[in-house]
Design a protein around this nucleic acid. Sequence first.
DNA 1: CGGAAGATCCACT
DNA 2: GTGGATCTTCCGA
Length: 208
Amino acid sequence: MSRWRALPKSFYRRPAEEVAPELLGRYLVRDVGGERLVARLVEVEAYLGAPDRASHAWGGRRTARNEALYLSGGHAYVYFIYGMHFCLNAVTGAAGEGGAVLLRAAEAVEGEAAIARRRGVELPARPGLLLSGPGRLCQGLAVDRRLDRVALQRGELRLVEGEPLGEAEIVRGARVGVGYAGAAASWPLRFAVRGSREVSRPWPWRRG
DNA sequence: CGGAAGATCCACT
DNA sequence: GTGGATCTTCCGA
């Protein structure tokens, strides 16, 4: 059973655009308060670093907040947004590059009751309500700034092999909420599991 | 030092 | 579909 083996650092030491689709179907494992919470990733976005105006590392910007982006691939970058929400990224590439993959949506695999409790949602949850959206994902899995900069191979937050998908099962589109980013706003760096009901927003080109 | 905007979510209409 | 909550960060003056 390799399903629960952590993804090695070498997995992340590639361009974010290449890592992102391969993160779909993987499991995010969170050990907190004596509980194990596991979620299967169904939607991610790649952020390319310096050349990407939508990235926090655009133009090589480096501040106290985004410092984790410049760690080597395989670390977590967690930031606070809109005064209320956290977002979780997996850093990609070599140290100093600034690439990352934003984890946008997942479905509960284990510990669903505990996840729902942290989300303030009653079970059974309506599809698309539990972990659909980067802020919801962090709330449900108890991810906050304390996990900024941690390595994702061991410890209380890990990414493991899970169930990798083939290309035919993956859809691709423009990223969400980056309209300010000029040409980069339309780069097709958003990836999701085809047909998943837990994707954070509908795909413009798909009806229903 | 002030202001604006943000990789969002939720309630309400 | 719209707007409010809420606060950190960044940039310009």
